[in-house]
């Protein structure tokens, strides 16, 4: 954990960064409800491969999205060392399966660079922009499209 700077001002926001493979991503901390360890999920039929299934989150049924698979980074069999970041997307709660949580970052809008054109479509639709922080490249994830949409399933 590196040290986060805490001088708040209007355009600053806090992000939680996490690691998938060798890449680092982050999401807005306001969307994050909790972070918990991996527990085996119940697989769902008729579901894209990146949905690992559902787990019991204190009585609620929580779908788990394998973010690595969602971003096209391949799947790994989760172990007890994997982490689930529970986020709120609209009215729904979703668990994001990631390798590890790294840091809490305080950033400003100005630090966000547009996603370069090299990225493939799949990445581009989830990555809102990238940031260079302490020599690391961190991609900001948009959560809206993380869950499979109904239209996509119908097609």
């Amino acid at each position: 954990m590196s040290e986060a700077t805490h001088n708040h001002s209007a355009d600053q926001k806090e992000l939680i960064s996490f690691r998938i493979g060798q890449q680092e991503f982050c999401v807005d901390i306001m969307a994050v409800r909790e972070i918990r360890g991996w527990t085996p999920a119940t697989p769902l039929p008729q579901t894209p491969a990146f949905v690992r299934g559902v787990i019991n989150l204190r009585g609620a049924v929580l779908p788990i999205v394998d973010l690595a698979a969602r971003l096209g980074l391949g799947t790994v069999e989760p172990t007890a060392r994997h982490v689930i970041i529970v986020v709120r997307i609209g009215e729904q709660m979703v668990g994001l399966l990631v390798d590890a949580v790294c840091d809490i970052l305080t950033v400003t809008e100005a630090m966000l660079q547009p996603t370069p054109d090299v990225a493939c479509d799949q990445v581009k639709s989830f990555v809102k922009g990238i940031m260079a922080i302490e020599g690391r490249m961190i991609s900001l994830i948009t959560l809206d499209r993380v869950l499979p949409s109904l239209e996509a399933e119908a097609a």
């Binding site: 999920a41 039929p45 008729q46 299934g53 049924v61 929580l62 869950l147 499979p148 399933e153």
Partner: peptide, 27 residues
């Protein structure tokens, strides 16, 4: 009965989910 739709969506062939004694979700 726990709704699948509230956090996910309807799945054909699955009416809902529930939580079993071992704390795991069953469909």
């Amino acid at each position: 009965i726990k709704s699948l739709e509230s956090n996910y969506r309807h799945i054909v062939g699955i009416a809902a989910a529930t939580i079993l004694g071992d704390g795991r979700v069953a469909l």
